[in-house]
Amino acid sequence: MDEAVFRARGLSKVYRVGEVEVHALRDVDLELRRGEFVVMLGPSGSGKSTLLNILGGLDVPTSGSVSFLEHDLSGGDDRALTAFRREHVGFVFQFYNLIPSLTARENVALVTEIAANPLDPAEALARVGLGDRIDHFPAQLSGGEQQRVAIARAIAKRPDVLLCDEPTGALDFETGVRVLEVLERTNRELGTTTAVITHNASIAGMADRVIRMRSGRIVEERRNERRLAPAELTW
């Protein structure tokens, strides 16, 4: 668990909205280590989503450098970033972002079809406890089920890293806990480096490491002595 897979140095991101410049990230340094479960906390606009997007190769920094193992992610070469995402990253979004016209199995297959060494879609869905709903369309699934399909889709390619943006944000407490259990189990059983961003501080208890952000900066970083099981969390 000691090898750093992500290395970010002096990351800044500036958006231009009309005539206003928004500094989403200011001079951030960060490392994520293999197999680590990291929770990033912060209010809206703290820059955590921007940081996650840059780590996931969805966006590039305005300045600074970021790399995943030997991949440089700050260059902005679309082809390289696409290949990086295809080979290494699984995403989970707050609003699941399933393709409504595809069934659960097909949503997962969408990703396994372009992966090198994927799980079988049915197996991925079984892992998240949806073995009996694989032929349902998103509209026929509850929010928690949809989010678990999204997680199955993210882990089916056996990614090196799982990036989750507010995975429980749209869910009620019980459903949220179930989703977190799936993430925890994936991290434990497959050794997938996992970063979860949330503004729900309670979730921090299940992390190896907690990073707190505000106004585009990392303001606190701490390591949990003991990771709580999701069932032990309350909010």
Partner: peptide
């Protein structure tokens, strides 16, 4: 738009 974003996030090329 968002479906396109997801496809690209998972590594589908433009």
């Amino acid at each position: 738009r968002e479906q396109i974003a997801v496809l690209k996030a998972f590594g589908y090329a433009s």
